[in-house]
C-alpha cells in the first residue's frame, strides 16, 4: 500500500464518519478516550455543515428569506448531500442550487423559487465576473457599411440574462432588506438583465423583444440576425442602452467569434 492509498483510506473513513452514519466505527483510528474522540468528531460535522449553509445563505439571501430558516437549512443540508462542494472556494459553491430547488419536492408549492435562485446566482456571478476593457468605439466607427450587418458584439463578462415565467424581479425587489416582502406584481413573466456597472450589480426588467435581442447578441449572432429576431421592432434603443451602461466591450466582423 502506498502512502497516499493509506492516507486516502483514512481520510475517506473520516469523511464517512463525520458526514455519514458510521461514526462509531472510526473510533479505532483515534488516540485517547474513544467517547471524547467521537464527541469531538461531531465538532467537525457541525463546522462543515455550518460552513456550507452559511455559503449558500450568503449567495441566496432572498431564497432564505422567502422560505425561512428551518426550511432553508434543511434544503441546504440535502443539497450538500446531493451536490457536495467540488472545490475549496465556498464563493463558488451553489451553482446548481437552483436546479436542486426545481426538483426539491418540498418546494413544489413554490414553483417560482428555483427561478429566484437562478436570479440570485446570476447576481452572484456578475459581481465576481472578469473586468474587461470598454468597447473601442473609434474602431467600431470605422467598420465599413458593408460589414455592419455581419458585426458580432461582445457583451461584458458580467452580463447575464435570466428569463422566467414568474415575476422573479418583483419578488427579488420585494425581499430586499428594506422591503416587507410584498411584491408589486403577482403574475406575469420577468426577463431580467443583470450586469455590473461602477462595481455594483444592477438588475433591469426587459420587454420580450429586448430580451430576445440581448439573448441573440449573447449567443454571438450577427447584428442583422439579432435585429431580425423580432419583426417590426426597433432594436436601436436596446443597443444604445447596452452601450450606455458599459455592457458592450468588443466586436468582430465576418465569421470570427468576438474575442
Amino acid at each position: 500500500m502506498t502512502v497516499t492509498e493509506g492516507l486516502a483510506r483514512l481520510q475517506a473513513q473520516f469523511a464517512a464518519a463525520v458526514l455519514g452514519e458510521d461514526g462509531a466505527g472510526f473510533a479505532r483510528h483515534l488516540a485517547g478516550d474513544a467517547g471524547a474522540g467521537l464527541r469531538r468528531l461531531a465538532i467537525y460535522r457541525n463546522a462543515i455543515l455550518a460552513n456550507r449553509r452559511r455559503a449558500l445563505r450568503a449567495a441566496f439571501p432572498v431564497v432564505a428569506r422567502l422560505v425561512g430558516d428551518g426550511f432553508f437549512d434543511e434544503a441546504a443540508l440535502r443539497y450538500g448531500e446531493a451536490c457536495p462542494p467540488g472545490g475549496a472556494d465556498l464563493n463558488r459553491y451553489g451553482a446548481t442550487f437552483a436546479a436542486f430547488l426545481a426538483a426539491y419536492p418540498h418546494a413544489a408549492a413554490m414553483p417560482w423559487l428555483a427561478d429566484v435562485a437562478r436570479l440570485e446566482w446570476a447576481w452572484h456571478e456578475s459581481l465576481a465576473a472578469a473586468d474587461a476593457p470598454g468597447m473601442d468605439f473609434a474602431a467600431l466607427s470605422r467598420v465599413p457599411e458593408g460589414e455592419q450587418p455581419g458585426l458580432r458584439l461582445l457583451l461584458h463578462p458580467s452580463v447575464r440574462l435570466v428569463r422566467s415565467a414568474w415575476p422573479v424581479l418583483s419578488i427579488w425587489e420585494a425581499n430586499q432588506p428594506d422591503r416587507d416582502g410584498t411584491p408589486d406584481r403577482e403574475d406575469g413573466a420577468d426577463d431580467v438583465l443583470v450586469w455590473r456597472e461602477a462595481q455594483r450589480v444592477l438588475l433591469a426588467r426587459l420587454a420580450p423583444p429586448e430580451a430576445a435581442f440581448v439573448d441573440a447578441v449573447a449567443r454571438g449572432l450577427a447584428l442583422e440576425e439579432a435585429a431580425g429576431i423580432t419583426d417590426a421592432w426597433d432594436f436601436t434603443p436596446m443597443l444604445q442602452r447596452l452601450a450606455l451602461h458599459g455592457m458592450l466591450c468588443g466586436f468582430s466582423t465576418g465569421d470570427r467569434v468576438p474575442a
Partner: peptide
C-alpha cells in the same frame, strides 16, 4: 491539514496523522 477526499471538499481544516509517511507526502 487536509480538507478534500475523493473530490469532495469538506470546507474545514481537518487534522493529519503525524507519521513519517504523511510527513514525506
Amino acid at each position: 491539514c487536509w480538507s478534500s477526499i475523493g473530490g469532495e471538499h469538506l470546507s474545514e481544516l481537518l487534522p493529519l496523522p503525524y507519521s513519517e509517511e504523511v510527513l514525506a507526502h
